[in-house]
């Protein structure tokens, strides 16, 4: 009898022991898992830091050698080892500007169609189709631009522009020179197609977040569709739309492959939009593996640093704007 009581106590004891063991094991795995996930989150921060630091270290020789003149010098001469970033910076800015000039109105008009005019059953298919444009890899835009789009522009749009503006004072320099097909304008147009879906999808989200009551009140007052969009929807959605545009701008500034195919890679600042040029990313993509000499490589990495800084600022503004609109929509 006493034995049995003892063994009962033993069983209870061992059950309690195993329970404690299991609990402590759980506590340890719990702690470990927490630490691992937190480390992963910090790793994302570390990644950004490492990118910036490695670019600064890599680009330092060039930045030290050329100083501020790196930003304003136009020369890009591997033989004499004189490098300046002006031509790539100029190309990057101008191609992105052209892209935005075309993509923003176009994107907003498509959004207007999708949110106000399009029948319900067509909305989803059309917006998915537009968003597929964002899914196509950039190299596809490049090969398409080189073999299909550039020859087409060379035959049609570019001669037309040259003829049209040939005698207009300022515009004639913008559209001067022979129609190469490839060049700054072509790159800008391709970029416009590529960033279009970013603008459309974000502005569609913010357009749809406009309270229907506001719109209905405006319609009730006799507003036309355009007036509702212009005076009610756009003011309400402004911050979000600007955020979307900045996001698209960030994409356009950093886009590499599509531009590399059609820009022509000429290291000069040319007043004509039809002339070949280069961008920061295209320069890096084209020359990095062939760069000989530390200063050449370093100059290219410094270009990368420059690009990263520009896009970082643009994207930070975009995220800030989008965060503001998200908070408002709740």
């Amino acid at each position: 009898m006493a034995d049995m009581a003892l063994s009962d106590a033993n069983i209870a004891e061992s059950a309690w022991m195993s329970r404690a063991k299991a609990l402590s094991r759980l506590r340890i795995t719990d702690k470990a898992f927490f630490q691992i996930t937190r480390a992963a989150a910090y790793f994302v921060l570390l990644l950004l830091g490492a990118i910036i630091v490695s670019l600064i270290i890599g680009g330092w020789p060039a930045l030290k050698e050329f100083g501020f003149s790196f930003l304003v010098s136009q020369s890009w001469n591997p033989v004499t080892e004189k490098f300046g970033a002006l031509a790539p910076i100029y190309g990057t800015v101008v191609t992105s500007l052209i892209a935005m000039l075309i993509a923003v109105p176009l994107g907003l008009l498509i959004t207007l169609f999708l949110t106000e005019l399009c029948p319900m059953w067509l909305r989803r298919p059309i917006s998915i189709a537009i968003e597929l444009l964002a899914g196509i890899p950039s190299i596809i835009y490049g090969i398409w631009g080189l073999f299909v789009f550039a020859p087409f522009l060379q035959r049609t749009l570019q001669p037309f522009l040259i003829d049209l503006f040939g005698n207009v004072p300022v515009l004639s320099t913008l559209f001067a020179g022979p129609p190469y097909g490839i060049g700054v304008l072509t790159s800008g147009l391709i970029l416009a197609i590529m960033v279009l879906p970013f603008i459309t999808s974000i502005s569609r989200d913010v357009f749809e977040a406009v309270p229907p009551m506001l719109k209905e009140a405006a319609y009730g007052l006799g507003f036309t569709t355009w007036e509702v969009v212009r005076y009610v929807v756009l003011p309400y959605a402004r911050v979000g739309v600007i955020g979307g545009v900045m996001l698209a701008l960030g994409r356009a500034l950093g886009e590499t492959m599509a531009v590399t195919f059609v820009i022509g890679n000429a290291h000069k600042v040319s007043s004509s939009l039809l002339a070949p040029g280069t961008t920061i990313s295209a320069t890096i993509a084209n020359e990095f593996t062939e760069a000989v000499g530390d200063l050449y490589t370093s100059s290219l990495i410094a270009l990368g640093l420059l690009l990263f800084c520009i896009t970082f600022i643009v994207l930070a503004i975009a995220r800030y704007m989008l965060m503001r609109i998200e908070r408002r929509i709740g």
Partner: peptide, 22 residues
């Protein structure tokens, strides 16, 4: 982290190439 991650999400991929090169 969310802010930084969103920026990494749209950072130019060529810069990532330079980073791994280094």
């Amino acid at each position: 982290v969310r802010f930084i991650n969103d920026i990494l999400l749209s950072a130019p991929s060529i810069v990532i190439g330079l980073f791994i090169y280094e």
